[in-house]
Design a binder for these strands. Structure first.
Lengths: 274, 274
DNA sequence: AAGTGGTCTAGACCACCAT
DNA sequence: TGGTGGTCTAGACCACTTA
C-alpha cells in the first residue's frame, strides 16, 4: 500500500524508529490511507473470487499484504460493513454480504399488508409468493436502453412476475435485464431460484445488487395489469420504477412494478411496527 | 464510566502497569464500553443543553470525564455520526446535527419533478414553496391519538399546507402535533419558519426528528384535496402517511400527504440522477 | 489449540479553525 | 498559538468458531 494519502508526510520520515515509505504517486494525494485500502478491498470483492460462502483473507493477512496496520484495515472494512457490502462473523471471517430476504426487506422497499388496529394478524411477517408469468428475449426499447446504459435494440431479457401475499395478488413486475450481463439465463433457472431474485444474481452471475433508485407515482391501472391485479381498469394503483445498481453504480436491472394498494402499503426500509 | 461491559475483565487486573477498575454493576454486563459511552452521549444530547450552534465538550474532555480512552469515545461518536445524530467539524468541534434542507432531502422522502430525457432543465435542483392554508387547535381523533401515543380527545395542533414546485402545487399536507409537546406554537411562528419544519422543531422546541416511518398508497383524490392540487376529483394521487420520530422512537408528528404525481415522482433518499 | 473478528488502550502526528 | 477533530500505528486481551 502506498502512503500517498497520509495527511502529513511529503517525504520519508523517521517516526519512533519506524521508517515510513516515500510517497510514490503525486496523484491520489490527500486521499486517506484507509480510503485507499477500501478501494483495494472493493477491487478484490468485484473480482468475484469471494462469495457469501467464502471468507476474505483474515484482517491480519490483508493488513500485512497491503502494508497497513490492522487498525487502518479495520477502518476500511468498517465502512464497507456500514454500506452492507461486507459482513463480519466473529470466529469465522469476513464475507461478501449475502442477499437474503431479510436484507431485501431492510435495504429495499417492499409491499406490506395495511396495518389494521383491530386485527393483530395483520401485523404478522408474511413472505410473498412469486410467479413468473412471462419470460422472453427481446430488443431493448428506448427507456430500457437509457436506464441500463445499453443501445436501443440490444438484447434484453424481459420478464413478468406476479407477487401474492396471503394468496392475494398485489403486485405486477416487469423486469428488463441486459442479456450481455446475464448470459445463459433461462426461464427454468429463473423460476427455480432459491430465495430472492438478487440472490440468484449473486450466486449464478457474481453480481451483487448494492442499492436501487426508485421513483413512485400513482396512475390509473391499464387493462392488462388490472386483470392481473384483480382491480377495475382505471383504478388508482402505484407504479414504481426501480433501477438496481451494483459496484460503481452500474445498472443491472430495470423494473416497473404496479401495485394494488387497496389493502397493502408501499413501505420504506426504516419502518418498524409502531 | 463503569467498565461493566468489558468483554474480558471480571475483576481488577494489571495490564501493562495500568490498573483496570473493578466491574461495578452486575447488570448491564456484556454491553461493550463504547455502547455505554454512546448511551451517556445520547443522554447528554437529549437533555437539550447542546444545539446545532453549541459544540459538545471536546473528545479529550469527554473521554476524561467518562474515564475511557479517546479511541473508545470516538467509537461511540462514530456511531452517532453514522446515524446522523451528530456531525463533526474538524477544528471546531462536534455538534448536534442541524436540520437543513440538504438533510431533509437526503434523509426523508420528497417529491421531485419527473425526469424528462429531452429536457435538461427538469434535472435542476428546485426548492419547494410551502404555504400554510390552515392552522387550528383541536382534539385528536382515533388515528392521530394512536399514532402520537396520546389519548383521543387530547389537544393537538392540526395544520394544513400546500407545497409548490416551480409554481405548480404538487402536494397537500395535513399534520397533527401533540399540543403537550409543542406548547405555545403559533401560526405566525409556524409560517415564518426559517427553513424546514423540522428545523423549527429543533430550534424552538429542542426536538430533533431522527427518522420517520412512511407508508404510501395510491388513492382516488377527494374533492377538497383535488381542488387544492388542481386535479379532477377521483384522479389517482399518492397518499403518504408519515410518523416522525425523535429519540427513543417517540412520535412527534403525524402527517398525511397527498401528492399529484402527474408530472412529479415520490423519490427515496438514495436516489441520485441516473 | 489455533484462528477469526471484537474491544480497549496509548501515543504520535496531522489538518483545520479561531485568536 | 492552542484547541479541535482526523489519521495511523502497535499491542494486549477477549469471545466466538472450528478442528
Amino acid at each position: 500500500m502506498s502512503n500517498a494519502g497520509r495527511q502529513c508526510s511529503n517525504s520519508a520520515v523517521q517516526v519512533k524508529n519506524k521508517t515510513v515509505p516515500l510517497k510514490t504517486s503525486p496523484a491520489n494525494d490527500s486521499l486517506p490511507l484507509y480510503r485507499q485500502v477500501k478501494r483495494e478491498l472493493q477491487k478484490i470483492i468485484e473480482d468475484g473470487h469471494y462469495g457469501p460462502g467464502k471468507p476474505l483473507p483474515s484482517e491480519a493477512t490483508l493488513a500485512l499484504a497491503l502494508k497497513v496496520s490492522v487498525g487502518t484495515l479495520r477502518h476500511a472494512v468498517d465502512e464497507l460493513v456500514h454500506e452492507h457490502v461486507l459482513v463480519r462473523r466473529q470466529g469465522k471471517g469476513t464475507f461478501v454480504a449475502p442477499h437474503n430476504r431479510a436484507r431485501f426487506m431492510f435495504q429495499f422497499f417492499h409491499v406490506e399488508p395495511r396495518w389494521d388496529p383491530e386485527d393483530d394478524m395483520s401485523r404478522e411477517q408474511v413472505f410473498p409468493d412469486i410467479d413468473c408469468i412471462a419470460f422472453a428475449r427481446d430488443k431493448a426499447d428506448e427507456a430500457e436502453a437509457r436506464a441500463l446504459r445499453i443501445k436501443p435494440g440490444d438484447a434484453v431479457f424481459r420478464i413478468e412476475n406476479k407477487l401474492a401475499l396471503r394468496g392475494r395478488v398485489v403486485l405486477h413486475d416487469r423486469l428488463a435485464l441486459s442479456a450481455a450481463i446475464f448470459r445463459h439465463l433461462t426461464e427454468k433457472r429463473f423460476s427455480e431460484r432459491p430465495s430472492t431474485i438478487y440472490a440468484l444474481f449473486q450466486t449464478d452471475f457474481g453480481i451483487t445488487v448494492l442499492r436501487a433508485q426508485e421513483r413512485a407515482r400513482a396512475v390509473a391501472a391499464g387493462r392488462a395489469v388490472a386483470r392481473v391485479l384483480g382491480v377495475a381498469a382505471g383504478a388508482p394503483v402505484m407504479e414504481v420504477h426501480r433501477l438496481a445498481l451494483t459496484f460503481g453504480d452500474r445498472p443491472v436491472e430495470y423494473r416497473i412494478s404496479t401495485i394494488n394498494t387497496q389493502a397493502h402499503d408501499y413501505v420504506s426500509m426504516l419502518s418498524k411496527t409502531p
